[in-house]
Amino acid sequence: MEALKTLRMTAIAAAIAAPLLAGALPAQAANERLAAFYKNQVDPHFALVRGGVEAMAKQMGAGPVTNYAPTRPNNLAEQLSQIEDVTVKRPDAILFMAVDPRGVVPAIEKVNAAGIPIVNYNDRVAGGKFVSYVGADDFKLGLDTGRYALKAIGGEGGVVIIEGVKGSTTSDQRVAGFRKALEEFPKVKLLASQPANFQRLPALQVMENLIQGHPRIDAVLAAADAMALGAIEALEAAGRKNTKVVGINGVPEAIQAIKAGRLLATGEFDGFKIGCVATEAALRYLRKEPVPSEIILQGIVIDRSNLGPWDVPMEKRTCPKWADVAR
């Protein structure tokens, strides 16, 4: 009984100490204080974005960056609370990507009212005022990558689309691009278009199920690499090695898969670059330098012939030059 009591008291003491210790982390004081938002802390794409943000902040001598991601992946209600809280904290500038393009608008208007400069990156927000938008053209990425795949199968056959989270800009625009590409190839038949929420296991299972219903699938167009790689696992397990699969993003695993000949190609949606450029835009604005209202990073289709620049670990990557991207 005595031992039990001691154990319980120790547990309580530990439980009290943990959050207090966490709270006692050193407060930051440096030049520009940046707050950066992400949609989740699960997808490696956002790890790349964060790497870019931190690399550029360091390179330009800004203070440490505070990072915010919802504790439940892609949770809108949590993101709303976080942006409201950050408004109170008053960082010098905010880098923001939206879990949902429309639901966050009232919260962004509050940031505008508080007069904190905010750069929109990665996912476009449908309202509010931003210093700049830094991202890629998701529709064009879908179109180019789709075209690339459809050409590779000789312009005819059956195709499957795997969608991301319905309602998110990155998924909707990329899928619209895929469909536009399909219109250009009238001999290609769209067999199915199913969402897999940007996740690997759902993509794997959707593909396993579709394989059963379709004896021949010539190409799979996935709206993100994670889903493309899940689909490949299903196809390889079923012995369907001739199906061409493309993804979008260019995360490290996708580059390795292209090298190994498993993934045909991926549309460049370079998180590291997006993070770099958005950070530079915010710091330039704070340092009273001109910043264009929109910076669209031109993404290419990455395949075996040109993957060199992406076959580099994140720590060794360098940010693009401002003059090359800001036009």
Binding site: Q41, V42, P44, R200, L204, L229, G230, E233
Partner: peptide
């Protein structure tokens, strides 16, 4: 089965 792990 999936050949990959992430925290989600």
């Amino acid at each position: 089965r999936v050949n990959s792990a992430d925290s989600g």
